[in-house]
Write a protein that binds this DNA or RNA. Structure first.
Lengths: 277, 277
DNA sequence: TAGTGGTCTAGACCACTCA
DNA sequence: GAGTGGTCTAGACCACTAG
């Protein structure tokens, strides 16, 4: 069993009291990966094999693998195997443009956008419909009674749900609500709604506020983003307004926490704490 | 078994093919809680009891409970039981002050700060020492080779690790690195370092940049924040500078995603997308 | 069809809390 | 000591992927 020359991963572990076995297995696997024993995209031994090598039950190995998958170190595929995740570097998204698409383009990245679905609503919409926060719709919002409404553009709304891919890999699911009256008829979904909307109506769209939080990937996000359910996502929501301060869009992004970092420079005048402290 | 009049939670579930049993149990528990069957802080039946009621194995129930705990719907305590988490409303942190402490105070909240440890370093420090991202130190950073260094204040550094409590419950673990030369001798840790530092040296400290991402709580964060390991945390890091643009501090916050939302108004002039699109 | 990961079970033991 | 959650095991079956 352990005389296999290639079975480098997983020799029986010393069981230290106070430390769970799955935790020891996780730490061992992680240190091997960090040390470089396994190349990126390399397939790990099967769960059964790891269990044998470590001398533990398969469920114990699974728990360790699961934790590593959630933090983005591993990637497991049903019926195929577990693989070391490549390039664990976060991409920095620099703020400044109105849409994430524009923010990431022009940095040498190939950013594409895919519309998943487009739904029309007759009128104001409960914000509770935010891409369900780990199936906890209604919870998790700062104000569950918040309405997505457009005082200056009454009438039906359009909801767009789309995915942003960065260099061939999905890294963000998004959700936008805009007044139907503003959506250009010829918009094909390849450019951001906001620049299309700005071109068509001559509006200067800008972000009015941004709100950041963190959530876990639900099964839907997980499937779209190629992460396991329970992975950490950056929740970025905000409101877009035109040059007159009229609300033209509500947006919600779910950004892979293991692949992106949203950077923001603070442009305003310096705020001296001494003034009030 | 199921004739118990009080055993409202958990009658045998219809097994629908294609849906995992633990997933069905999770959905059932969640809907009961959302419906209000269980008051906040109410204790759920024991795992054994739930397993009997649902007619499934205890491990299956545990998986469901675990997922609910990670998203903040439940709170489980070893040897005690599982409880419905109270007030699932997020607190909104409004940006504008240099420190989170000041941001949350003055909003009717009782914010306190507890220093966990203070460590001195002889010189520049590798940023990889960020509160280990789910034990994946070195991974998860936008730039692992990043240095925490202060060109204008050479000499030893002080690292502070502390916890912010909001109305008696912890909601943020923080990490700050400042030049030792700037730390006031009489600073007792009850006010933010930055206002203390500003008072002592007459510096007007302000945030220079902010970087947002999402991570999972490791065991250390979990213990400090009273969340289970694997809960979603908002990772907020940034640099503080004085009025002359000299770097005076690096800070990292791990904020409970189920309890807080970081809001930011965009003050700058409107950015028209039409200009470049 | 063989091999992989995903799920579920029954049963055991341990660690923790509290009366 | 009774009751709770935390861990681990052995074994089974299913679902998926690939040759």
């Amino acid at each position: 069993m352990n005389s296999d020359p290639l079975a480098a991963a997983g020799t029986p572990l010393p069981r230290t009291p106070g430390v769970a076995v799955w935790e020891a297995v996780r730490a061992d696997l992680l240190s091997r990966i960090k040390r470089g024993d396994h190349a990126p995209d390399e397939q790990l031994p099967s769960e059964t094999a790891l269990a044998q090598n470590y001398g533990v039950n398969r469920l114990t190995v699974r728990r360790a693998l699961n934790e590593l998958a959630r933090v983005g170190v591993l990637r497991t595929m049903h019926g195929v195997g577990s693989f070391v995740a490549p390039q664990l570097m976060r991409h920095r998204i620099d703020d400044g443009r109105i849409s994430l698409l524009e923010s990431m383009s022009g940095r040498g990245h190939n950013v594409t956008q895919h519309i998943l679905e487009t739904v029309e609503h007759p009128g104001p919409r409960r914000a509770a419909g935010v891409p369900e926060l780990a199936q906890v719709a209604g919870f998790g919002l700062s104000d569950p009674s918040e309405l997505w409404t457009f005082p200056d553009f009454p009438g039906p709304l359009i909801e767009h749900r789309y995915v942003l891919d960065l260099d061939e890999t999905p890294w963000c699911t998004s959700f936008a609500v805009v007044p139907k009256a503003l959506v250009p008829a010829d918009w094909d979904g390849t450019e951001s709604i906001f620049s299309a909307l700005a071109k068509t109506h001559g509006l200067a769209v800008r972000r009015d506020d941004r709100r950041f939080s963190a959530i876990l990937a639900d099964t839907r996000d997980a499937a779209l983003l190629h992460v396991p359910a329970g992975a950490a996502l950056l929740l970025l929501s905000g409101t877009n307004v035109d040059q007159d301060g009229r609300i033209v869009a509500y947006i919600v992004h779910h950004i892979r926490g293991d692949r992106a970092e949203y950077a923001l420079r603070v442009p305003g005048p310096s705020i001296g704490p001494g003034e009030e402290a």
